[in-house]
Design a protein around this nucleic acid. Structure first.
Length: 730
RNA sequence: GCGCGUUUAGCUCAGUUGGUUAGAGCGUGCGAUUCACAUUCGCAAGGUCGCAGGUUCGAUUCCUGCAACGCGCACCA
């Protein structure tokens, strides 16, 4: 305080004589905020009845802050600070996600570097190592979130692996099992052979690949494939029932043929899933490794045979090729078929999209595997209803369509993962019939279906199974005090890439467990790309570290640079030049404050002052219109626009025009004119600081502290009232 | 292939329900500046608003078609 209150002979604070220094200021100001306790809603001054709640998307506890996080923190902090200044009982609740598969992948990479592998490690030991790794990293993330100025309530911080939360997630599983919404089934799943786990449909990506497309003679038919290595067990040939070319063949007809490893007998199947137009209109099926084939086999009750094992090697069915990896076996198999005269032709330029593991890009090997599934249809229907009836608003609005499309086309969700890093599935598996049963208390001893003996399930939940319940879990559903007060939350702000992965799951769990939507508004921001609009990636070397930018230009500059011109939903290009420009703005504001304080020496801001000259009255009206306009933008989540308007007003209207002409008035105007102008300047500085505070909290608070020198913490800008009082219609 | 989106100044992008001379930031050029700020100020150049139709008194804005790009989904027959 001594430093803050030191003034020079003119009454000016010495600090203003130097340029604004973010690195000296930010840590100190954040500490001031945090110590005030105002991040927690119950500590906020005044009487606040209406709650405003936003849950922070839990950061992955496995890395450090990237440019995308910086945007999340900025947007959400703007929303939070604005609501707080509007008098809401504001809660922004932070948290961390163990990020199951993601984290395990990161850790496995580290193991690889050390020449170790998770295969063969004691699962408990591995879990302990990853936990230590995660806890270490999470400290990093937290301090980086603080650096961004995030005014979130650290006292309520949550972690998905807190024992309390783990218990609740497991209870949800039990409830869903009892309600018939979770079942165990041997179905075709996305399998990553490298990581040896199943993945949900959103954990795969398609990658364009050019592969040779082979045509083989299959008895009297020609079949095409890019994957000859799966064809060993193919003994059903399928065609469309309406295909005239093959009307001579009847369902169930058999014929002998020479195949890869010798003569086999094939059977004709007719199925409408076949596309007559495509190729020869005939294909053989590999039910164990192709989703469509699996469905056909199910429909016709055909046997399924595994050809490739869970680590991507061929099984004994492949004969001489057994034990080989796919890449090695494929050319050899083609060679053999060619030698036998069965190779008809090869199209070398076949381009297709191959699903790959989104982490390691290993091609997904569909496998039939016993897993836990969530029945999506009944849950999705509720979500559709909620959105259709307007209970959830999407910003931008086109995500509503995407959300609904997704919900109308759900497939059952595979929630079990064969990894240790995650929440254990509280279930037992029957050794005899393979069925599973939810078992929270570990007190079921015999299979309820067949009486067989049981083993404990060693799988863990898909991470989205827990993060899908995040709004409920963080607020202490069902009995927590916070849950009663703050649920449903107001806004969920998230990356647009999570429109499938995360948003629908939260809606589904919210409706299923609590009967209410988890949030009323979904705000989706786009990707943060580099200056050229290219996606940032380590391999391209164009990753911009937000913390480097805060050190160089200050957090405020980064924040407002990320926000202005960034419309929701679309990706933005982040360039250093832009941020540099906003660094100048922080300093400009600093000097505006210095000038106003200096030139109004001896004059106190009179809240009720009204004796403005006619010229000043006009300026006052303009200022009012601008602030109302900006408030509308805030209410409509047009932060990019509000920020720009306020920026433009502060710099190009207030500083460039009004301050310039004030020099004249303050020197040669009469007493009335001078008084009027001084009051106008003081009021305007006051309102500019307040309205810009959500965007650039550090410099505005620092100026405020130096200017007002509040003796009570209630006098902080952070909890000052927003300069427009009523809610303008948007 | 299906769906969603984008296309406006050299670059990155705004443009709020169709309405005079289409805007911002950065960049560029010229000039100013001992007086809050060289992290400054003023002035300027620069756009057939992707292309082709249509609706309208009037279209960057609405509709149709096309093209290019991006994203998502499907497809390894």
């Amino acid at each position: 305080m001594t430093e803050l209150s030191r003034k020079n002979s003119n009454g000016m604070n010495d600090k203003f004589l130097k340029p604004y220094n973010p690195s000296e200021t930010e840590g100190r100001i954040y500490q001031l905020w945090e110590e005030s306790g105002f991040f927690a809603p119950e500590n906020l001054p005044g009487e606040r009845k209406k709650p405003f709640t936003m849950i922070m998307p839990p950061a992955n506890a496995n890395g450090s802050l990237h440019a995308g996080h910086a945007l999340v923190m900025t947007l959400e902090d703007i929303i939070t600070r604005y609501r707080r200044m509007r008098g809401f009982k504001t809660l922004w609740l932070p948290g961390l996600d163990h990020a199951g598969f993601e984290t395990q992948v990161v850790y496995e990479k580290q193991l690889e570097k050390e020449g170790r592998s998770r295969f063969g490690m004691d699962p408990k030991e591995l879990y302990k190592e990853i936990l230590a790794f995660t806890l270490e990293n999470s400290k990093n993330i937290e301090s980086q979130i603080r650096k961004m100025g995030a005014s979130c309530d650290w006292s309520r911080q949550q972690f998905t692996l807190n024992p309390d939360l783990v218990g609740k997630v497991q209870q949800t599983f039990k409830k869903m099992f009892d309600d018939g919404l979770v079942y165990r089934g041997s179905r075709i799943v996305n399998w990553c052979s490298k990581h040896a786990t199943s993945l949900s449909d959103v954990e795969t990506e398609s990658k364009e690949k050019k592969d040779p497309f082979y045509y083989f003679k299959y008895g009297p038919f020609t079949i095409g494939t890019t994957r000859p290595e799966t064809k060993f067990g193919d003994k059903y040939v399928v065609m469309h029932p309406d295909d005239k070319r093959y009307s001579a063949y009847k369902e169930g007809d058999t014929f002998p043929l020479e195949w890869i490893n010798g003569p086999i007998t094939a059977t004709v199947i007719k199925d409408t899933a076949i596309d007559i137009e495509l190729g020869s209109g005939v294909m053989t099926i590999t039910p164990w490794h192709t989703a469509i084939d699996f469905d056909i086999a199910e429909r016709h009750k055909l046997p399924k045979e595994q050809v490739i094992d869970m680590r991507g090697k061929l099984l004994p069915i492949a004969g001489e090729f057994a034990g080989m990896k796919i890449a090695e076996a494929r050319p050899k198999i083609v060679e053999k078929l060619k030698a036998k005269g069965l190779l008809v032709k090869v199209d070398e330029n076949y381009v297709h999209n191959v699903p790959v593991c989104y982490k390691c890009e290993t091609p997904i090997e569909p496998q039939v595997s016993p897993q836990w599934f969530v029945k999506m249809k009944p849950l999705a229907e509720k979500a559709i209803q909620a959105v259709d009836s307007g209970k959830i608003t999407f910003i931008p609005n086109n995500y509503r369509k995407i959300f609904l499309y997704w919900m109308h086309n759900t497939i059952d969700w595979n929630i079990s993962r064969q990894i240790v890093w995650g929440i254990p599935i509280p279930a037992k598996i029957c050794e005899a019939c393979g069925d599973g049963v939810a078992d929270l208390a570990d007190d079921i001893k015999k299979c309820p279906k067949c009486g067989g003996s049981l083993r404990k399930d060693t799988d863990t939940f898909d991470t989205w199974f827990s993060s899908g319940q995040w709004p409920l879990l963080t607020l202490g559903f069902p009995e927590g005090k916070d849950f009663k007060e703050f649920y449903p939350t107001d806004v969920m702000e998230s990356g647009s890439d999570l429109i499938f992965k995360w948003i629908p799951r939260m809606v589904i769990f919210g409706l299923y467990l609590s009967g209410e939507v988890p949030f009323k508004t979904v705000y989706l921001h786009g990707l943060v790309n580099d200056a050229k609009g290219q996606k940032m990636s380590k391999s391209k070397g164009n990753v911009i570290n937000p913390l480097t930018l805060t050190e160089k230009f200050g957090t405020d500059a980064l924040r407002i640079g990320l926000i202005s011109g960034n419309t929701p939903g679309t990706s933005l290009s982040l360039s250093e030049d832009k941020i540099r420009g906003y660094k100048n703005f922080a300093n400009k504001l600093w000097n505006i404050a210095r000038f106003v304080i200096e030139s109004t020496e001896g004059e106190e801001l009179e809240p009720a002052f009204s004796a403005y000259t006619s010229a000043d009255a006009v300026l006052r009206l303009e200022r009012h219109d601008l602030l109302v306009d900006a408030t509308k933008d805030m209410e409509a989540y047009r932060f990019y626009m509000g920020a720009e308007k306020l920026y433009h007003y502060a710099w190009h209207t207030f500083a460039d025009k009004i301050l310039e002409e004030s020099k004249e008035i303050l020197q040669s105007g009469n007493a009335e004119e001078q008084k009027s102008r001084k009051q106008f300047l003081l009021h305007t500085l006051d309102k500019i600081l307040k309205s810009l505070h959500p965007f650039i909290p550090f410099v505005t608070e620092e100026i405020w502290q130096l200017w007002k020198q509040p003796s009570e913490k209630e006098g902080m800008l952070m909890v000052a009232e927003w300069p427009v009082h009523n809610s303008p219609k948007v």
